[in-house]
Amino acid sequence: MPESIALITPSVSVASAEALAAALAPRLLAQAAHSDVEGGFPTREFGWLREAGLLAAPLPVALGGSGLGETAHTAALLSTLRHIGRGNLAVGRVYEGHVNALQLLQRFGQPAQVARWAQEAAQGHLFGVWNTEAHDGVKLEPLPDGRFRLHGSKTFGSGAGHVTRPLLTAALPDGGWQMLILPADEQVPRYASEFWQPLGMRASASFRIDFAGLEIGTEDLLGQPGDYYRQPWFSGGAIRFAAVQAGGAEAVFDETRRFLQRLGRTNDPYQRQRLGEMSLLIAQAQHWLQAAAGVAARPDAATAAEATVAHANLMRSAIEDICLRVLPLAERCVGARGLLRPEPFERLHRDLTHYLRQPAPDAALADAGRYALEQTSPAYQLWQP
Rank of each mutant, 00 (worst) to 15 (best):
P10Q: 00
V14Q: 01
P26C: 12
Q31I: 07
A32S: 14
T43P: 10
E45M: 14
A56S: 12
L59Y: 02
L63W: 09
L68C: 10
G69N: 06
A72C: 11
H73Q: 00
L77C: 00
L77T: 00
H83K: 01
I84Q: 00
L89F: 14
A90N: 06
G92H: 06
V94L: 01
Q103N: 01
L105T: 13
Q123D: 13
F127H: 09
F127Y: 13
N131W: 15
E133F: 12
L143K: 05
L143H: 03
R147T: 02
S153H: 14
H162W: 07
V163G: 11
L167H: 13
L168F: 06
L172K: 03
P173F: 10
P173S: 08
G175Y: 09
M179S: 10
M179L: 15
Q187K: 14
A192N: 13
W196S: 03
M201H: 04
R202W: 10
S204N: 12
F211G: 12
A212P: 07
L221E: 02
L222K: 09
G223E: 05
D227H: 08
F234M: 04
I239R: 00
V244G: 01
G248N: 11
A249M: 13
T256G: 02
T256M: 04
R258V: 00
Q273G: 04
L275G: 04
E277T: 13
M278S: 03
Q286S: 07
A292W: 02
V295E: 01
A296V: 04
A297E: 01
A302K: 14
A302Y: 14
A304R: 07
E306R: 10
E306M: 08
M315R: 03
A318E: 13
R332H: 10
V334N: 11
G335W: 10
R337G: 15
L339K: 12
P342Y: 13
E343D: 09
L356F: 12
R357N: 08
D362C: 04
Y371Q: 15
L373E: 14
T376Y: 05
Y380P: 14
Y380K: 15
L382V: 05
L382E: 02
